[in-house]
């Protein structure tokens, strides 16, 4: 079983989850929902295997290329979904999450590059800690954004007094809002820990706490954005629509910086680790 076999298998599982989830959206049923979440879980495990194999091949944490990073991120989003879908009754989102996971895994497969040499400076046990935390944070923010989109859609329907049959399986506004808060909090904690680990790593191996380059700058901006959002939630009572909109805006900034920095910027954090 090599990495590309595993990726193929996981793509198949995700596809199955998309189909079952789509049928479930059109006509909710216990069986289709169960099939959808089991397929997604299978795809998740298969992709985990692929990521592990790839990491073994590279000799380090396999997030070297942009595609690998995207795939890792979407894999984490699927993982978060699997972990909390039941609790927050988010199972209806299965089809969307499976689509996202499918797209990520597909990128990893298409961009299946050879072995890249990692610069000596980055060969460190700090790498998986630092990068893993950063990605966990990003995945949590992505999930918060997804939840917020659902919130806004349902909120608009309720405001307009026009209910929709598709709302049947959705969680209540209050539940979605709580899920948003949870994801933001966890994302923020992860992001903060990731920054701290980066600072520590930089201090220990380069003798500098902070180097100004595009990625670190953007990260600082994003950290402040989410800090402000969480602060507003806790003190002013931002919630509901406001929080949902800000969450989506915050994630858009994150997305733009993630793509922009990875594709166009130099620095230690650039994709090729050049």
């Amino acid at each position: 079983m090599n990495e590309s076999n595993l990726l193929h298998a996981s793509l198949l599982a995700y596809l199955c989850a998309i189909l079952a989830g789509g049928i479930d959206l059109a006509q909710p049923g216990n069986t289709t929902r169960r099939v959808a979440s089991w397929s997604l879980g299978t795809g998740f495990l298969l992709q985990a295997g692929a990521i592990l194999l790839r990491s073994g091949e590279v000799g380090s944490f396999a997030v070297g290329s942009f595609a690998e990073q995207v795939a890792f991120l979407t894999w984490l989003v699927a993982g978060i979904f699997l972990a909390i879908a039941r609790r927050y009754r988010l199972a209806v989102l299965g089809a969307i999450v499976a689509t996202i996971a499918f797209a990520g895994a597909l990128m990893a497969l298409v961009d299946h590059g050879g072995v890249r040499d990692l610069p000596a400076a980055l060969r460190s046990p700090w790498l998986p800690v630092h990068v893993g935390l950063a990605f966990l944070g990003n995945a949590a923010f992505a999930f918060a954004c997804l939840v917020s989109l659902i919130y806004l859609w349902q909120e608009r329907k309720l405001k307009a007094h026009s209910l929709d049959a598709r709302m049947r399986g959705l969680p209540s506004l209050e539940t979605l809002d709580q899920a948003n808060y949870r994801c933001l909090t966890w994302g923020f904690v992860m992001l903060t820990l990731s920054i701290l680990s980066g600072v520590l790593w930089a201090e220990l191996s380069f003798g500098r706490l902070w180097s100004w380059e595009p990625r670190t700058m953007w990260t600082a901006v994003i950290w402040m954005l989410y800090a402000g959002l969480l602060h507003g939630r806790v003190t002013v009572g931002w919630g509901g629509r406001q929080a949902a909109r800000l969450t989506i805006a915050g994630f858009l900034v994150l997305l733009v910086s993630f793509i922009g920095v990875n594709l166009f910027s130099p620095g230690r954090h650039a994709v090729s680790f050049g």
Partner: peptide, 27 residues
């Protein structure tokens, strides 16, 4: 009951009110 929405739909005005309350509030 478990496979169709036949029992889950509020068809009177007061049960519609409850249904909406449950769309907005978790519990």
């Amino acid at each position: 009951r478990s496979e169709t929405g036949i029992a889950s739909k509020a068809v009177s005005v007061s049960s519609a009110a409850v249904d909406l309350a449950q769309r907005i509030f978790d519990d």
